[in-house]
């Protein structure tokens, strides 16, 4: 069942997203709203990972390097370090957005499958988490819009 692959995918992607939020937050700590919001959003992803554990116990998890090729290519690596300056912040937020989009679409397909399987527990986790991923993405959008003009036009 390929669902297992996707559960593995979302598990890793959420973990990567959480770690990357923390890296970006710490790296741009001079912008206090970025620091504190990234911390809060990282915790959201931590919580999704935590809630996935009983699901993984039931379904098992298709790990890295297994034989299902296609989704494996989707695994994105996170941000290990940040760029500097206003444009750097903008680029880092953009990278987070890419990671978040991967998480979101993965939840979307899991929601479809969970309905097909009438797995109410999985459906609840996926819907809650997918909803929160949308909040993470909205914040990234809002913050990028705020940062863009100054960074692109006048920043040194």
């Amino acid at each position: 069942m390929h669902l297992v692959t996707y559960i593995g995918l979302v598990h890793r992607a959420e973990q990567t997203l959480a770690d990357s939020f923390r890296v970006v937050g710490q790296g741009h700590a001079k912008e206090p709203d970025v620091l504190f919001t990234c911390q809060a959003l990282a915790q959201m992803s931590d919580e999704h990972v935590r809630r996935l554990i009983p699901i993984i116990d039931r379904y098992g998890e298709q790990g890295h390097g297994d034989d299902v090729e296609e989704p494996e290519r989707l695994h994105a690596s996170g941000l290990a370090e940040v760029r500097s300056g206003p444009v750097g912040l903008l680029r880092d937020l953009q990278d987070l957005h890419v990671l978040g989009t991967l998480v979101q679409t993965t939840w979307t397909v899991i929601i479809q499958a969970a309905q097909g399987l009438r797995d109410h527990d999985l459906l609840k986790v996926a819907r809650d988490a997918g909803g929160e991923t949308a909040r993470q993405l909205s914040w990234l959008n809002t913050r990028m819009k705020a940062a863009a003009p100054q960074a692109l036009i006048v920043a040194r």
Binding site: D33, A40, S138, W139, N141, T142
Partner: peptide
């Protein structure tokens, strides 16, 4: 969003 400030 009251937690993050993300715009609706």
């Amino acid at each position: 969003d009251l937690l993050t400030g993300a715009a609706v």
